[in-house]
């Protein structure tokens, strides 16, 4: 009997396939908005949801999704307000989620073993009723992520511009947060709540080593996510280890390969020059040799924030419209 004939493995593989598609799909939008760690926060909050389910005897998937959506809405609300205290408020929410979850699971009379299956995934615990919920939610996330792609892309790319085109930006932001919460719950059984964020972010980071468009990043990330999930689940069965850890380790290995290949490709095509370099100076008269910048107290360095421009054997710094280059103890105009 092969592993593909075992019913629980079939369910695990279907859940893995959908998780591998939906986590990088929503992850692409989160990374685009520079909110890579949002999935992690929602995962922490969902632990309380799971614990509530165990305590009250309801299906943990349902309580987890309710608490995760509430948490994601709270995160989005705090983020949209943009207050400096928002960062601390989010930290409190995350710690509260994980501590509350562990506490409630203790009260429910469940041990660390039960908690572990939710934190790092477990192949044997995907029940048929869980699978229906997972399939339904993952399909909904994918339909929205692809169907509303242009709108979600615009909001994540440039929120102010999106608002001036008349898009319902607050609604779309909330939609992204809710989709992330749903995906966390979908992924809970395969990668687990502590590692779900990795499946949202690592495939996207891997894809962008070799892609140049949003669409190809999206598609490549989903392909990487599915591959990592299915390979991880099969490996996890054979080696009898937690699937979440296996999936994430495989995804990270893929990232390292892609980063190396991407660096080699960029070197080959000669695109290792600073990316935001200005246009080549065609027709600009050559600068006078050795003009010392008068009264230049600022010492440029790699980290000073002035734009750096490769200039032959040295680096010029763009400073108030002038190019400055180090020359011994003073700065030259270039």
């Amino acid at each position: 009997m092969t592993i593909f004939e075992l019913e629980f493995m079939q369910r695990a593989l279907i859940a893995g396939l959908l998780t591998g598609l939906s986590a990088p799909a929503i992850g692409t939008y989160l990374v685009q908005r520079r909110l890579s760690l949002m999935g992690d926060g929602i995962g922490h909050i969902a632990i309380t949801g799971v614990a509530l389910g165990l305590l009250t005897g309801t299906a943990p998937v349902l309580t987890a999704i309710i608490v995760a959506i509430a948490g994601a809405t709270a995160i989005e609300f705090v983020r949209a307000r943009g207050k400096a205290s928002g960062d601390v408020a989010l930290a409190l929410l995350f710690y509260g989620g994980i501590a509350g979850g562990v506490l409630l699971i203790g009260l429910a009379g469940q041990g660390a073993a039960t908690l572990n299956t939710y934190l790092f995934g477990s192949l044997t615990t995907v029940s048929p009723s869980d699978l229906y919920v997972v399939v339904g939610l993952a399909v909904a996330v994918l339909v929205i992520a692809i169907g509303l792609g242009p709108q979600l892309f615009a909001v994540c790319q440039d929120e102010e511009f999106a608002r001036v085109t008349g898009l319902r930006v607050q609604l779309l932001n909330l939609l992204i947060a809710v989709m992330a919460a749903v995906t966390v719950t979908v992924a809970m059984r395969t990668v687990g709540l502590l590692l779900v964020s990795a499946l949202m972010v690592v495939p996207v980071a891997t894809a962008q080593q070799i892609t140049r468009s949003f669409r190809s990043t999206f598609v490549t990330a989903c392909a990487i996510g599915v591959t990592a999930c299915l390979a991880g689940i099969i490996t996890s069965y054979n080696a009898d280890v937690a699937p979440g850890a296996t999936i994430v380790v495989l995804a990270l290995a893929g990232f390292m390969v892609a980063a190396t290949v991407g660096a080699l490709l960029r070197r080959r095509s000669g695109r290792v020059a600073p990316l935001d370099d200005e246009e080549p100076e065609v027709g600009v008269p050559a600068p006078e040799p050795h003009v010392v910048s008068a009264g230049h107290p600022h010492a440029h360095s790699q980290a000073c924030g002035h734009k750096k421009v490769e200039h032959g054997d040295h680096v010029d710094y763009v400073h108030d419209g002038h190019l400055h280059a180090r020359h011994g103890d003073h700065w030259d105009e270039h």
Binding site: T28, Q157, D158, S213, F214
Partner: peptide, 18 residues
């Protein structure tokens, strides 16, 4: 630019959303 690569074409097409 955002956190994910996007092409010139993709950014310009987002101007048509209204």
């Amino acid at each position: 630019a955002g956190g994910v690569p996007a092409t010139v074409y993709e950014v310009v097409s987002s101007g048509l959303l209204s």
